[in-house]
Simulated scan of single mutants.
Amino acid sequence: MKKFLYIIMSIIMSSSLLVGCQVKDDSRVKIGLIVSTLNNPFFVDLKTGVEKRAEELGYDVVVLDSQNDPAKEVSNMEDITVKNVDIVLLNPVDSDSAIASVMIANNSKLAVVTVDRAANGGDVISHIASDNIAGGDMAAKFLMEKLGSKGNVVELEGIAGSSATRDRGKGFEDGIKESGFKLVAKQSADFDRTKGLSVMENIIQSKDKIDAVFAQNDEMALGAQKALEGANMKDVLVVGFDATADAVDAVKKGKLAATVAQQPVLIGKTAVDAVNKILKNEKIKEYIPVQLKLITK
């Protein structure tokens, strides 16, 4: 009988502990994070920054991956509205399609903060990102200094419609406007390394001389560099954007000339700090910039 009572008491105590743990988890504030893609080191780092800072502040994070698909992003927003999150951080696939996602959250009375890429509509409390226009201009000035403001330049663009593509392109093109650079090709490679490789290979076949490449992210820059290396065009200066680990390593080895450091972990941390203020009913700015820097050898 004593042994039987001991077993019963053990079961009751274990059940109490489980119930206690569940209550504790349910009491924590939940932040929803919808990421454009986790098949890109930059956004993996951004996610890490969000999760690390959230843990420090006692928040849980629910992460959904849009896989670079606007329709998937809309589906993710619909899903996250029923996951009992208190606020959502949205990293859009592109800025136009993000309007639908933001409006779903608005209709569910769910506060939205955009991260890295903006939404072109809907009610967004704040946008946390690097100054992409300034970053594009930074890349332009670097190449102008290295090449004496003369030569043939190629620009690889990101996903059409995203604010990052628009702003990085504007910063770069405005930056070289008064120089002797000639923009001989400008094509989209969707922020993807494999596409960056194939697009650059096609450009190489159609252009006699290329002096520099500005890729609007590091994945495309690394793809372009591989294409140039394969064509034995090792003197072409390639500048990327994001300062991912692979790109920084390539800069150290002299394969990439430079990368604009966007500091994704810091963007994620800053986004959670903004969420923390919103949840405490503190006022925050509509746009919170995160510092950029140029990484060179």
Results as ranks from 00 to 15, higher is better:
S15K: 12
R28D: 05
I31R: 01
I34T: 13
K47R: 11
E51V: 00
G58D: 14
Y59C: 04
D60Q: 14
D60E: 13
S66M: 06
N68H: 02
A71E: 07
K72N: 08
K83F: 05
V88L: 07
N91I: 00
A98W: 01
A98R: 02
I104Q: 04
A111W: 09
V113C: 09
T114W: 09
D116R: 01
A118K: 15
G121W: 00
G122C: 12
A129C: 11
G136K: 01
K141H: 13
L143K: 11
L143A: 06
L147G: 06
L147S: 09
S149W: 13
S149T: 08
K150W: 04
G151C: 02
G151Y: 05
I159L: 12
S162W: 02
K170C: 13
K170D: 14
F172P: 03
K182M: 11
V199M: 08
N202I: 06
D218N: 01
E219F: 02
E219I: 04
L222R: 01
L228K: 02
N232V: 07
V238M: 03
T244E: 01
A245T: 12
L266R: 00
V272Y: 00
N276S: 14
K283D: 14
I288W: 11
Q291D: 13
I295Q: 02
I295E: 02
I295W: 12
